[in-house]
Amino acid sequence: MVIEERELGDAELGTLLDAAYAELVARYGPQGRSQVKPGARYLVAVVDGGAVGCGAVQDADALTGELKRMYVAPAHRGRGIATALLGALEELALAMGHQRLRLATGLRQPEAIALYERCAYVLTEPYGSYVGAPLMRCYAKAL
């Protein structure tokens, strides 16, 4: 597996993002599509020459990055790709100058919750549009 940075216009990244959006909408309805800010940086996990997973880091504030669009194609889950991708995203966040990484996920994504908790993310107060959203859970980790 190789993890590499890709630009938003990349075709394989676009396919992964479309699949991620479709899964979010299937689990939560149209409100599952939160926005990614311009300037977010994307990483793609490549296995046997094909893109199988992605994630992004965007600025939340000067010291905090926000994890977005963490996704691994269903056929490639359970192989450690998400864990490796998350580690690479944490390294990217550090390189961007962040001391902390935050994220939001939902109760209908128990596999994501398990990943983040296994990787030392701690439950934190909801932020932004997630305040008052009963299905959402917010996590953070000092890097």
Rank of each mutant, 00 (worst) to 15 (best):
L85D: 00
L13Y: 04
L43Q: 08
A22F: 02
C54I: 05
T83F: 03
L92Q: 13
L16W: 02
D61S: 09
V2L: 09
H98Y: 14
L67P: 01
A51K: 05
G80R: 04
T64Y: 00
T124K: 12
A60K: 13
L143I: 08
Q31D: 11
G49F: 06
E66G: 01
R137E: 01
G80A: 12
Y42K: 07
I113S: 03
Y28D: 10
L123F: 12
M96W: 08
T64C: 01
R108I: 06
G128D: 12
Y21G: 01
A120W: 13
A20C: 14
Y42A: 09
A95T: 14
V122F: 14
V2I: 11
Y130P: 07
T15V: 13
G14N: 07
P38L: 09
G53F: 11
Y28M: 06
L43I: 10
G65V: 06
L67D: 02
L94N: 05
Q109R: 09
G128V: 13
D59L: 14
C119L: 15
L13R: 03
E4R: 15
L63C: 10
A88I: 10
Y42L: 11
G53K: 10
A140W: 03
Q99I: 03
R77T: 02
M70W: 03
G55D: 11
L107Y: 08
T15D: 12
V131H: 13
A19V: 02
I81S: 01
V57M: 14
T105H: 06
L8Y: 13
G50T: 14
E66I: 03
K37W: 07
I81N: 01
A95Q: 15
A73C: 01
D10H: 12
L8W: 10
A104W: 05
T15W: 07
P74E: 05
C138R: 05
